[in-house]
Nucleic acid binder design. Structure first.
Length: 407
RNA sequence: GGAUGGUUACCCAAGUGGCCAACGGGGUCUGACUGUAAAUCAGAUGGCAGAAGCCUUCGGAGGUUCGAAUCCUUCACCAUCCA
């Protein structure tokens, strides 16, 4: 068993508060709560909420999940909360616009897949999956009033995203005010000792949740705030709506390739947040990059391998790596690719469309015009060319199709 | 309840009778260059059509006109401000 100090160090690793006072206050509370837990033998109750507004979890979500895993490995009780109620409101955090509302059916469908995907990181047997609609749906208006008396409009409007919207005349809907209160209610209901989340959750986790818990006479939860992971563009936060995600639910090749597509400057952040490298390995990685002793390409390959390995294991990760080297570094064709049986005398144009390598015939023509289509390595110039004897058709850099002749 | 503004392609946004398949930006795609990327440069970006050309699109429906994203009528939705 790790000492208290070691545990605090581990659990606070990678956190980001944007305010050193808050960070050290949280660290101190965590230490006290761990000591208390040791004394009483009651594990800490730790949770993180996920709003299932889209169907897939991505690498950004795994940051908080890895943190939950650390708590879990230390014997604490972990709740994976699915925001089946709160996602109907839409978290205004970090948003300059109100979120579009999602339907209830969608939310539950997504919630199910979330939990499944989460077990790629978390220990299934030790994780409790809960849905906040189970209790939030039953909260009475009276109770809402009771909670709301602890909040002021000024306080909420002072949050910079609301302030910006006030400034620019963007609408602020009243229901958005209730998001932080609902999240606070979750913490209260779960009697949470610790709540993990992205640092855009500062208000929800630290201010709102603690306020609500205090209103109920509970010990306020400790916030463990993690930085947000930028997407594959390296700039904006990873988010499905921006299309810059690395989904968990994919395959090893895709994951490896997507990690390889992040900009160089983003590598250290990814290494810190999404790998299980020790502090020492991490330091070696970073100094290697700084001093130039580690080639950025090789560094990124290490990173891509490590991230892929965590989800798919060594065998698949190294297969993905081999394939990546072959296709992108050597320009070979990959070993595996979809196949297509010739039916008659289809033209290349037809085949491209039939196999979704182009969205329409017009698109396929453009692709050919732009010299983006190759048959067995030879650039196709004639859209009406036939593929008599089969071969490998390539569209762009990464889409391949093995065409076979029917017998 | 009153006043005003708005609804244009994946997103933002220009266009206020013909030169509009619709400026510009973002995104995306392709090519070049690379270290795989990023950055940069070039091109493309509704559909059908081997060229010409045709068809569909500017919130919905109807109308005026030789001709409408642009004018009129009407419906729907959204927002801001003042009560």
């Amino acid at each position: 068993m790790l000492s208290i100090d070691e545990r605090v160090e581990l659990l606070m690793r990678g956190t980001e508060y944007g305010d050193s006072g808050l960070g050290s206050a949280m660290r101190e509370e965590l230490r006290e709560r761990l000591i208390e837990s040791d004394r009483t033998g009651v594990p800490l109750r730790v949770y993180c909420g996920y709003d299932p507004t889209s169907s897939d979890l991505h690498l950004g979500h795994t940051i908080s999940m890895r943190k939950l895993k650390q708590f879990q490995d230390l014997g604490n009780e972990v709740y994976f909360l699915i925001g089946s109620f709160t996602s109907l409101i839409g978290d205004p955090s970090g948003k300059d616009k109100a979120r579009p509302l999602v339907s209830k059916e969608e939310v539950f469908e997504n919630g199910r897949t979330y939990a499944e995907q989460a077990f790629r990181v978390l220990d299934r047997a030790k994780t409790k999956v809960v849905y906040n609609s189970d209790w939030l749906e039953k909260v009475t208006l009276e109770e809402i009033f009771h909670i709301a008396t602890h909040f002021t409009a000024q306080q909420i409007l002072a949050r910079d995203n609301f302030a910006r919207r006030m400034e620019s005349g963007e609408p602020i809907h009243l229901h958005e005010f209730f998001y932080p209160l609902s999240q606070g209610y979750d913490a209260h209901h779960l009697e949470a000792d610790v709540q993990v989340g992205g640092n855009d959750q500062l208000y929800n986790i630290v201010t709102a949740s603690r306020k609500v818990m205090e209103a109920y006479g509970q010990k306020p939860n400790i916030g463990i705030l993690m930085p947000l992971l930028p997407g594959t563009d390296g700039v904006q936060k990873m988010s499905k709506s921006l299309g810059n995600t690395i989904p968990i639910h994919t395959n090893a090749e895709d994951m490896y390739g997507k990690v390889m597509s992040i900009p160089d400057a983003t590598m250290p952040l990814y290494a810190t947040l999404t790998t299980e490298w020790s502090n020492r390995e991490l330091a070696a990685f970073e100094t290697g990059l700084e001093t130039g002793s580690l080639h950025p390409r090789d560094a990124k390959m290490q990173l891509a391998y490590e991230i892929t390995r965590l989800f798919y294991g060594d065998a698949e990760a190294s297969a993905a790596q081999d394939q990546f080297v072959a296709t992108f570094q050597k320009g070979d064709i990959p070993d595996e690719m979809p196949e297509y049986m010739l039916e008659g005398d289809e033209t290349i144009l037809d085949i491209l469309v039939a196999n979704a390598m182009a969205g329409s015939k017009s698109q396929a023509r453009r692709l050919i015009d732009q010299q983006g289509v190759k048959l067995d390595g030879v650039t196709v110039t004639d859209a009406w060319q036939r593929v008599e004897n089969g071969g490998v058709l390539q569209a762009g850099k990464r889409h391949f199709l093995r065409i076979k002749k029917a017998n």
